[in-house]
Design a protein around this nucleic acid. Structure first.
Lengths: 76, 76
DNA sequence: AAGTTTTTACTGCTTTTGCGGTAAATATTG
DNA sequence: CAATATTTACCGCAAAAGCAGTAAAAACTT
């Protein structure tokens, strides 16, 4: 994941959705400041904050690794 | 991203790598408590904490969305 | 140009994360 | 079994995230 571009990616999706920062914040159930800081390039924030925003904007986050196919939920 | 399983996925990768929680924490430059809490199912933490761990364990995080292909770094 | 909306920016404040220290429980190894 | 290593679990503290409020700057409408 390119952490440097998270903010810009979010912003692009938000504008495509025709939402203001405040509207996105309200839909995601977070504060307007979080959306602003995120888009402005702040690189650290809580996972849930990012996921709430991604959920609203229909962005999915996926894990990728060479061995992930060998993992199942029912393993130790 | 299945937030519920982050901890288990991390744990699986850590064990595959033959690392103890403390060793992973040291390699990632974070505290042992963060690794423990993460694997134990704590669902919220900082992005950078997760990314440091993923970096050590060779796990990549990718964005997926229907319109992501229309985004480039040089757009507004 | 005037009015409206949005974004940027800062503030003080509350909540949460992350930390090392410590210690008990559990697992591993000799 | 005994010694060692690891995991689990708690603590108090420090650092950071997130919040609403406010206001100025910038971007849009009409």
């Amino acid at each position: 994941m390119d952490l440097m571009n998270i903010g810009k990616i979010i912003q692009f999706h938000r504008k495509q959705a025709g939402l203001s920062q405040k509207e996105l914040a309200d839909l995601a159930g977070i504060g307007k400041t979080a959306v602003f800081d995120l888009e402005k390039g702040k690189s650290n924030f809580r996972i849930e904050t990012l996921l709430k925003i991604c959920s609203i904007l229909n962005i999915e986050l996926d894990f990728q690794s060479p061995i992930i196919k060998h993992w199942s939920k029912n393993e130790s």
